[in-house]
Design a protein around this nucleic acid. Structure first.
Lengths: 187, 187
DNA sequence: CAAAATATGGAGACAGTTTCCGTTTGTCAA
DNA sequence: TTGACAAACGGAAACTGTCTCCATATTTTG
């Protein structure tokens, strides 16, 4: 679904320019710029921007897909090397640390998680799947209770994503993760 | 801060008409109506609407302030009649049940919690204070761990508010609350 | 190199928001 | 009562940001 057609040379060039500029702006903490102006800034026309990325979320998703995929891969790697419950803990802690220094990703995830429908949510689902697998592994090992679904964990994560960026939110986010992890432990 | 000036008769009438219509619409699940049309629907001019409620959030806050205050009162009542840890559990469970059937409140809270600044967040802070007190009570009783702040709980709650309304979210929200409550238990 | 396919850019239509100010309504003192 | 003043009204018009459309330009292909 990522690759549909070969894409013409100038098209790819423009697309890359857009992504590069978006990455630059996001990194600088600028998220709510006028969509039209953004096109100008990237050196392309409005139409071109809209053809490549019909919505803000589409752009954000494209920018962070790689990063998100890397995180998911990391999660699976952890699952392969540690007991699932430990892997989950390490993964979630790392997740928060990463979000704390990558505002843009946090924002994007907050949006992606909220919109469960459409191709846009793809990235969100991928993350959900990784966590679901970690959870299932932990249940099988007997370290994690079996009466809580992924959705419950994702909801807490969503809260973290949304609130991320406020001053002092890091400590709170860590606390939330602690609650989730301890709450999940099988008694 | 609620009462600043005596407010003229017609002004109060219009204000009440706006609030009544808003309540009616929110109850019917209509949240994103055009702000202009809403004024017409309530039988006042656009200017009047804006004079009374400069933003959507201001309107939403006014509509739900009562309801929110009632919930906070309920929480304090629980604290007075039950061991704090139990009171917290009952309160949070009730909270989710209430949100599940009051979409508008969930949405409003999601917004209020997100914007920590300004008078608008007042309602959010009130809720936070109640939970903070319940938490503190539980710590004093020795039933609740003392290394987790209110912020951590609020973050999870925020996730619930944001995600609320999706099909099947109720079960997940209950799960999240379970995680929080079990995670908070002193071991 | 010409034709066909693909992509571009930006003007302008559109939708929703917000301001502004001439008119109306309410209040209060005489 | 009534007149004068303040407070509030309403809705037209200006504004702001989004998105579409198509004549023009670029790339690819035969």
């Amino acid at each position: 679904m990522t690759t549909g057609k070969p894409l013409r040379a100038d098209a790819r060039r423009n697309r890359d320019a857009l992504l590069a500029k978006a990455r630059e702006l996001f990194a600088g903490g600028c998220f709510d710029m006028r969509f039209d102006d953004f096109a100008k800034l990237a050196g392309v026309g409005t139409g071109t921007l809209y053809r490549h990325f019909p919505t803000r979320e589409a752009l954000a998703e494209a920018v962070y897909r790689e990063e998100l995929t890397a995180m998911c891969a990391h999660g699976r790697e952890l699952q392969a090397t540690l007991p699932a419950a430990d892997a989950l803990a390490v993964f979630l802690r790392g997740f928060v640390t990463h979000l704390d220094t990558h505002q843009g990703l946090a924002r994007t995830l907050a949006t992606l998680m909220a919109s469960r429908t459409g191709t846009l949510a793809e990235g969100g689902r991928e993350l959900g799947q990784v966590i679901a697998d970690l959870l299932a592994g932990g249940v099988q090992e007997g370290a994690i209770r079996d009466d809580i679904g992924v959705g419950a964990v994702m909801m807490a994560l969503q809260g973290i994503c949304v609130a991320c960026g406020e001053p002092g939110s890091r400590a709170d986010a860590d606390g939330t993760i602690t609650l989730v992890l301890d709450g999940l432990r099988h008694r």
